[in-house]
Nucleic acid binder design. Structure first.
Length: 589
RNA sequence: GUCCCCAUCGUCUAGUGGCCUAGGACACCGGCCUCUCACGUCGGUAACAGGGGUUCAAACCCCCUUGGGGACGCCA
């Protein structure tokens, strides 16, 4: 298998539609092919080639992390009060891409050309940073893509910047509208909102091609008539000689024009090196002789990926590109294209991969890879975001981060540079934490589909609300939540008794006590937790027994199982009628 | 094969030359709490891949080795 897809380190095997429980997310985002139209290719005023030179070079890791006193991530704290106010509005489109086409486009074109010219965008206090997430719609949003989306979103939101979305749907074979929808739904579920219109790469071929034409005109690109077979032969030869397999550039100076079967190649620099200061990995440099003259336009006239990405990012005004590690080797090539086009080079950051427990790249073999798999497993979105953000990023010893915390604290400085293993246990722990913290009303909104998924009608909201607090400390997922609290809501006659528990605890002696308790409960003036608690304790003292002796039999009688919330709570939540009915039934077992 | 990247407890990580007999969290083990299960709480086991340098001092800087990963498409 190979990496497919997104600009985000995904391995996005077109996942087959999972048999999803009835947890259809209530969040739907319209996929609409916004007409991007117009707008020439990157015809922005050419910027001085020197504009992009970094000042900070090769100082190793120390170089990108200045010496500072307190926890670095906490330094963002003072910034807090400013942010919420400043970044609001401006056509941030949550949900369907409607209506802000003009505004979005204008901003996209203007910002970079003025802001990027002289210093790296990061250092320029006046510049608005622009990040993007650019998935290719060949499957669901998987956790790797979700994480780079989260980081890109955080980078923008934490710096009062814009976060854009571009769908890289130029692979007609594998791109589907369903996948696009699934990705948007995934983003929405996670609460990652984007600014302005969604960009669809497939609608922008004319812009890409215009850029190629421009390079042809300026001599930065040339026509090549070598066939794929010939090129493969060159590569084979080079490989045999222990060199980097590459096209040998034989058409470079031939001055060929257009013609059938011909491609356009970049006339890349042949000596020197191309380097960049990666936001997560530090300085990276690759000798230009390692790279060949990559194809910009295929023989069928269509633009290639590396060209399209560069042109789109430049056109959209992207200043900071955060993407998967599998793109580091594309980066120098893309930088060469930026230079050939005279465009400002954005900052790049490559986030490491997510591994499975066996330390191999996370894949379906390891279980769930789509964020919706986790949704359906009853993971709360805030737990997912917290977990994913913490996977490869840290802030001192802090583990729990609300989205606001993240926005306030995030910086690329604290992004880790090595691959990380996806740890379900820790996700579960976080999820349990957020379930405890959640408002019961919210859980009541979320839970119904999880009951339905296990084949029972969703309980009434009121009944649900009385039971929910008892399970917030007991469930790690909503699936577990529904499963372990289901006995509350089933018909008394349909309650399933655990045979082993019945055999062990519902002895004749126990039944005798149950009968007494039944009468006691029937006579109780009210059936509240307090009065039950008092009555139970009084019974224990009066009959000179211990709570332990009556607890399990009673519990099994009303729940069918050995585990439940506290007895008085369980009985009260069940109500007198059901409690008595169940005890009666237990007496017959 | 070539190039690039990565390397602290089982896992996520803190660490940016002395605050390190390496800190936190998950998981695991044990105690407490207790009507069960949880929650909570207290405690414990557990790591700087190896070797050379540099330095008064190295988990941290440099080099090498080893191991892992990625890339080398008219895919994205």
């Amino acid at each position: 298998m190979r990496a497919t897809g997104c600009t985000c380190s995904c391995t996005s095997p077109a996942l087959t539609s999972p048999q999803r429980p009835a947890t259809q997310p209530p969040i739907r985002t319209e996929v609409r092919h916004a007409r991007q139209g117009g707008g020439g290719p990157g015809h922005d005023p050419p910027l001085s080639a020197t504009g992009r030179r970094r000042r900070r070079v090769g100082r190793g890791h120390a170089g990108r992390r200045g010496p500072r006193a307190p926890h670095r991530c906490l330094q963002r704290l003072p910034a807090r009060p400013r942010h919420p106010e400043e970044r609001r509005g401006e056509g941030r489109a949550q949900g369907s891409a409607r209506g802000h086409a003009r505004r979005g486009r204008a901003a996209g074109r203007l910002i970079p050309s003025s802001a990027n010219a002289l210093s790296p965008p990061e250092e320029n206090a006046m510049s608005r940073i622009v990040t993007r997430f650019a998935p290719s719609p060949t499957g669901f949003l998987h956790v790797g893509g979700a994480r780079t989306a989260i980081f890109s979103w955080l980078l923008a939101r934490s710096r009062n910047g814009r976060f854009l979305l571009r769908i890289e749907d130029t692979d007609r074979e594998r791109s589907t509208p369903e996948a696009t929808q699934a990705i948007l739904d995934g983003m929405t579920w996670l609460g990652l909102d984007w600014d302005g219109e969604i960009f669809y790469q497939s609608e922008r071929a004319h812009i890409h091609n215009a850029a190629v034409d421009r390079m042809l005109e300026t001599g930065q690109a040339y026509w090549c008539e070598c066939s794929p077979e010939e090129v493969e032969a060159m590569r084979e030869k080079a490989r045999g000689e222990g060199r980097k397999p590459k096209y040998d550039g034989r058409c470079r100076e031939r001055g060929l024009g257009p013609g059938p079967g011909r491609v356009v190649r970049l006339k890349a620099p042949q000596d020197g090196a191309t380097s960049f200061d990666d936001m997560v990995k530090g300085p990276i440099s690759i000798a230009n002789e390692e790279m060949d003259d990559l194809i910009l336009r295929r023989s069928d006239g269509s633009p290639t990926y590396n060209l399209a990405v560069v042109v789109d990012d430049a056109e959209m005004g992207v200043t900071h590109v955060l993407r998967g590690e599998d793109h580091v080797s594309n980066t120098p090539r893309q930088i060469q294209i930026y230079r050939a086009l005279g465009l400002p080079v954005p900052r790049f950051g490559h986030v490491p991969m997510i591994l499975g427990p066996d330390k191999k790249k996370l894949s379906k073999r390891h279980g769930a890879t789509s964020v919706f798999d986790y949704h359906h497993q009853g993971i709360l979105p805030e737990a997912m975001v917290n977990y994913l953000a913490r996977l490869g990023w840290s802030c001192g010893d802090q583990e729990i981060f609300s989205k606001d915390d993240l926005v306030r604290l995030f910086t690329t400085e604290n992004l880790g540079s090595s691959a990380a293993v996806f740890d379900m246990d820790k996700l579960l722990w976080l999820n349990a934490h957020y379930i405890k913290e959640a408002a019961p009303e919210r859980l009541a909104d979320l839970l119904p589909p999880f009951f339905e998924a296990q084949g029972m009608p969703a309980p009434g909201r009121e009944a649900l609300l009385t039971v929910i607090p008892h399970y917030q400390t007991r469930a790690k997922t909503l699936v577990e939540f529904a499963a372990s609290s289901a006995f509350f809501f089933v018909d008394d006659a349909a309650l399933v008794y655990d045979p082993a528990a019945v055999a062990k605890f519902l002895t004749a002696d126990a039944k005798a006590r149950l009968a007494e308790l039944r009468d006691l409960f029937a006579a109780l003036p009210n059936f509240s937790e307090e009065s039950l608690d008092t009555a139970l304790n009084a019974y224990v003292t009066a009959t000179d027994t211990s709570f332990k002796v009556i607890a399990q039999p009673l519990r099994i009688a009303v729940t069918g199982r050995t585990q439940s919330p506290g007895l008085h709570q369980t009985l009260a939540a069940l109500g007198r009628e059901k409690s008595l009915a169940r005890i009666d039934r237990a007496l017959t077992l």
